[in-house]
């Protein structure tokens, strides 16, 4: 399954339902909830950390956390 860590720069995805207890509650409170959109804004060298935009919330998270957020990648043709 794809995760946030698989996104390419500028690519978007939609967060899927995930194990409710695996992610820190702070991340959920920042807007990381199933159904919300997520975009990879920028990544540091070695793809870590990742700078993402979750439902309007801009945050940086480390790769290990990003790997735990399941998504479906949205092919972004419509945005053009």
């Amino acid at each position: 399954m794809a995760t946030v860590a698989d996104l390419k720069k500028g690519q978007k995805g939609v967060i899927l339902d995930f194990d409710k207890t695996s992610l820190p509650i702070k991340l959920l409170e920042m807007g990381c909830l199933p159904g919300n959109s997520v975009e990879l804004v920028q990544m540091a060298p070695l793809k870590d950390p990742l700078y993402i935009n979750i439902d309007g919330s801009h945050i940086a998270i480390r790769h290990d956390l990003a790997r735990q957020i399941p998504i479906t990648v949205v092919e972004d043709h419509k945005a053009l």
């Binding site: 820190p24 991340l27 920042m30 804004v41 950390p49 945050i59 998270i61 480390r62 956390l65």
Partner: peptide, 10 residues
């Protein structure tokens, strides 16, 4: 336990 989450403000 604390995860690294940094807000990137405008």
């Amino acid at each position: 336990r604390v995860f690294f989450i940094a807000e990137m403000p405008n």
